[in-house]
Design a binder for these strands. Structure first.
Lengths: 205, 205
DNA sequence: AAATTTAATTAAACACTGTTTAATAAAACA
DNA sequence: TGTTTTATTAAACAGTGTTTAATTAAATTT
């Protein structure tokens, strides 16, 4: 059936163009100020038609947040050339933080906004494969660190969670503007200084 | 002028009753689903009248977030009895995390939501005295730790920021539902395990 | 080729939202 | 009592996500 194939292709194309319009608007104005009507206007369709391709706004932003994980994953690929697991762990932290600071809205969507996660709870299978996958590479790296003699006396999972939380905490306090309004000695270097502080501690363990 | 005093008192009372209604609704339904009309309905005034007491919704939620800092500050008062600065630092962390996990919506408002901070930027003096004050007690405690010989080779501010970020990261990943959807070995103990992991590290420094 | 069925699209409506404006009611002052 | 200030409100504005029913277009069957 060639016709069914073409129709499927066309449907996929329109779905993709909705997502492209949504991403464009979202990167310009943020999630809250990107409305279904805005997206519909941009692709020159009616607002209602979008609901034939996505069940609701949350699904659109869940799809966008997947693109964010793809982009982050690509940046992480340079880690393949870092042999020492401790060096790799540090490089992961640097890349993670650079990604967050260079793409604050995307990071916000991936790790702070409730929209993408709320969509999971509306589905039957509510496992966050993007996040779980990313956490797993961190867990593996830290596991290898332990195998190499680092982090003696520490359990993999709590330590992985704690380190993730540290970098997430630093960038999310920034993205949600809790740093600009505190008089740090070096406001726009505080994230890097904090990261250096973390590195120093990891070396001591 | 007794009349002016009474008027001021009455104005303050109505302002307080708006805040009380707002807090009640906010704790029941969250910020986004608490509307000006909801608040107005509860105090039996028209929606427009609220704008004689608050310039906008952000100011209401900024006022509520102040109440959160008050509550957190009160919980922190038991720290006065902890002499050793390292013990005090750990107790601070425990109290901080317990407060966040027991009052997730209030914590969200204080440290994640943009509403209270956006209100600061609409004012002339945009310093976040609540947050800066809280951070300062952390900074002082860590400064005392360094005086007592802990954290050798570390700078106060980056270290304080990093430790704040760690606890903030752990609770905010929970509050924004990034933990429930990852298959941790012990999902509802992961925050405590992460905190224990942090304590272990602090002891090693 | 014509009739029927299926799928895509849309206009309109629903029930909301924060905020502003202009009119009204109430209180205080002269 | 008349005037001014203050408080309150109804109504409107310009939006929001989402649903429904009607319409148009396309594909399939007769």
């Amino acid at each position: 059936m060639g016709i069914a194939d073409r129709k499927e292709r066309e449907k996929e194309e329109l779905r993709a163009s909705i997502l492209e319009a949504a991403r464009k608007l979202f990167l310009e104005k943020g999630v809250e100020k990107t409305s279904i009507r805005n997206i519909a206007d941009l692709i020159e369709y009616s607002p209602g038609s979008i609901y034939h391709y996505f069940r609701d706004k949350n699904e659109i932003f869940h799809a966008l947040h997947q693109g964010g994980f793809q982009a982050l994953g690509e940046k992480m690929q340079v880690l393949g050339s870092v042999q020492n697991p401790m060096e790799r762990l540090k490089a992961m932290g640097s890349i993670y933080i650079r990604f967050a600071m260079e793409n604050p809205d995307m990071y916000d969507l991936m790790f702070i906004k409730e929209a993408p996660i709320d969509h999971l709870y509306d589905q039957e299978h509510c496992d966050w494969k993007e996040g779980a996958g990313a956490f797993d590479t961190l867990r593996q790296t830290i596991s290898q660190c332990i195998d190499h003699g680092y982090f003696k006396g520490h359990d993999v999972e709590p330590l992985s969670y704690m380190i993730w939380s540290t970098v997430h905490g630093m960038v999310s306090l920034n993205i949600r503007k809790r740093c600009e309004v505190i008089d740090f000695e070096d406001k726009d270097q505080i994230v890097n200084l904090g990261l250096q502080s973390l590195f120093k501690i990891l070396d001591q363990l």
